[in-house]
Amino acid sequence: MGQLVINGLALGSIYAIVALGLLLIFNTVQIVNFAQGQLLMLGAFLGITGAVTHELPIGFAWIVTLVAMMALGLVFMAIVYFPLRGKPPFLIILTTVAMGIVLENLALIIWGPLPVSLPSPLTGRPLRFSGVVLSMHQIVIFSTTAFILLAQWLFLTRTRFGIMMQATSQDLQTARLVGIRVNRTIAVAFALGSALAGLGGLLVAPIFLAEPTMGGILGLKAFVVSVIGGFGSLPGAVIAGLSLGLIETFGARYISSDYRDAYAFVIMIIVLCVWPRGLFGEKSSERV
């Protein structure tokens, strides 16, 4: 029981981190990135290339990966954001989906289809107390998540730039008028959003192994988490992420592990039927 809670929260933390990256982009430019999962996969493979192939120290490999992911985020922005401003959402959705296809197949070409493993930055014996096992990697996951949450909160509420970013998300036109450099804000959002996906990959790979096709389902779960959390609400996404991790872990144990990946969608569909804007979503009416 206690073990399931720990495992569930660890899984949920990863969902939450990836969802936070998604929301950082969405809150700034109202684009949902359906390639977030493939960015996560790239993060995992860049980490593996650094730490396993080139035998860099793992901490250094993490840093290289995160920096590379930021650069990739900017490339991403140049391709999916600028040419598509003002296009209907379903075209934007499909562009990011197509981006995902491109990334996934490039990864297949570069790294091949076989699963690879990435070591955790912390190695050592797992901690045990009263029958519950806490692995070193789970400690990494929990502390990274806590760090990210704190850092994001401080960034958005305590730094000038973060506050400008929030202003941009509320009203792009006005933000531009009051002299915020909107394009720079958007660039930062894409860079950080992509880095958070990469971080998710670095955290997942030691548990599940990395393979080029791993991104699809993880990316989708990040959306489910954002949707349930009310698309735009950061605390909502964190709570939804942790809950989904718990539900999947318990569901796999007590209901059916075959349908493990379906729980997320079933819950999302139910939530959306009852609250069409998500559990924590704001109520807003379109202006006519």
């Binding site: 949902v32 359906f34 209907p88 959402p89 379903f90 959705i93 989708l220 959306f223 489910v224 949707v227 698309f231 059916s256 075959d258 349908y259 990946d261 379906a262 997320a264 969608f265 079933v266 999302m268 569909i269 959306l272 039927c273 069409p276």
Partner: peptide, 28 residues
Amino acid sequence: VPTLRLRSYYLAMTTIGFGEIVRLVLIH
């Protein structure tokens, strides 16, 4: 009936979810 009231991204997600659920049922 339950989902077409939803707007773009939500609809995208629920239809993906539907596809995923059908696939899992076909497999299992």
